[in-house]
């Protein structure tokens, strides 16, 4: 479905907008624990920048920048960061996701902030990759329309 769209205004605006959208997504993730937003919202915004690229420049351009294998790997890496932070807390003698037991040489309140930041980073990576993967799955032709499905 999604092919190249030939329009100089749309293409130039997309090229200008995408870096700002991505910076904003990173800002939302990084400030998630002290202002509205967080890993999920920031991940959706980062995913939306890739979806905008897919709508205007075609899905092949997205596949060139974010290959399908890497996309699926990102889904797993994000969950790994989330669960790994929780397991690290278990390893150092706390409960699951008990950030105050993390092995950082700073005050306990700062340890909590760092722990939440790493968890949100994991959530953001997973949500971004899942959004792009859903878009790829929806926009590619199914077996039924290719005629292979009986």
């Amino acid at each position: 479905m999604i092919t190249k769209y030939e329009d100089v205004i749309v293409k130039t605006m997309t090229r200008l907008l995408i870096p700002f959208i991505q910076i904003y997504g990173l800002y939302v993730i990084a400030h998630g624990h002290e202002s509205p937003g967080g890993g999920f919202q920031g991940g959706v915004i980062l995913g939306a920048s890739f979806i905008l690229l897919a709508v205007v420049y075609g899905m092949d351009e997205v596949k060139k920048r974010l290959p399908e294998k890497l996309m699926i790997a990102f889904v797993a890496i994000g969950v790994f960061i989330y669960a790994g932070t929780g397991a690290l807390c278990l390893l150092f003698g706390g409960n699951f996701l008990d950030y105050s037991k993390l092995p950082f040489p700073v005050a306990i309140a700062e340890r909590r902030a760092l722990g939440i930041l790493s968890v949100e980073t994991g959530v953001g990576i997973t949500v971004m990759a899942v959004m792009v993967a859903i878009m790829l799955a929806l926009s590619s032709k199914s077996k039924r329309t290719r005629g292979e499905f009986k």
């Binding site: 509205p36 937003g37 959706v44 995913g47 939306a48 979806i51 929806l138």
Partner: peptide, 26 residues
């Protein structure tokens, strides 16, 4: 509820509309 509004604006108005459009094209 600013946090909920943020989620609604990014997921509901942004991404899920595009998913619907992509599904309708099929």
């Amino acid at each position: 509820a600013v946090d909920v509004a943020f989620t609604e604006a990014s997921v509901g108005a942004g991404v899920s509309t595009l998913f619907f459009v992509a599904a309708i094209y099929q």
